[in-house]
Simulated scan of single mutants.
Amino acid sequence: MKSISKELVGASAVPIILSVLKNGDSYGYKIVQRVKELTNGEIAWKEASIYPVLKKLENAGMIKSYWKVEENKRPRKYYTILSEGEKQLKQNMHEWNLVYSVFNTLWKVNS
């Protein structure tokens, strides 16, 4: 199967990341692995590619980062969703549901 277009992956990055964080705080590598797992490997972000998105979300006040140190492990930068991020996620959910609805209607008519 052909890989998902860069444009679609890029357009979906924010709502995907916010959705992962809505389910609990996480760090970059773990977010990448969760998305890979949820998509059966069809979306396989490179870890470094999500950090600009995380930074953008943090600068916009949608998420906040903090350092967490666990025993015998190196410190990790975790991210948590803030109320602005939850508002954005709600908006994104509405938008994606609308687009899905349009495609669903069109594809039923044309199949």
Rank of each mutant, 00 (worst) to 15 (best):
N104A: 14
M62Y: 00
G28W: 05
R34A: 11
S5V: 06
H94Q: 11
Y100G: 11
E70F: 04
L98Q: 10
P15K: 03
R74K: 13
N72Y: 08
M1V: 06
K90L: 07
G41M: 12
T39N: 09
I4E: 08
G24C: 08
L38Q: 12
K56A: 07
I81M: 01
W67D: 05
V35N: 00
I16K: 00
I4D: 10
A60K: 15
N40R: 13
N72E: 06
G61M: 08
D25T: 03
W67L: 07
I31T: 07
P75T: 03
K87W: 03
N40K: 14
H94I: 11
W96H: 10
L21D: 02
M1D: 11
P15G: 11
K77G: 09
S5D: 09
S49C: 03
E70G: 00
S101A: 15
S12R: 05
E86M: 04
S101T: 12
V69K: 11
K108D: 15
E70M: 03
N92T: 01
V20D: 14
K90Y: 07
N23Y: 09
T105L: 15
V14H: 08
K22H: 06
Q88M: 07
R74A: 13
G28L: 01
V99T: 14
K2N: 10
R34G: 02
G41V: 14
L21G: 01
K30P: 05
Y79M: 04
E95M: 13
K77N: 09
S3Q: 11
E86A: 00
V99Y: 13
R34W: 04
E58H: 09
K73H: 07
S83M: 09
N92W: 07
L98F: 13
R76S: 05
G61F: 05
L57F: 08
K2Q: 10
Y66F: 15
Y78V: 05
N59Y: 07
L21Q: 06
V14R: 00
K30M: 01
Q88I: 00
K30H: 13
I31A: 02
E95G: 03
N110C: 11
L82V: 03
L8E: 03
A11D: 04
Q91F: 04
L57C: 07
Y78P: 02
N104H: 14
Y29G: 05
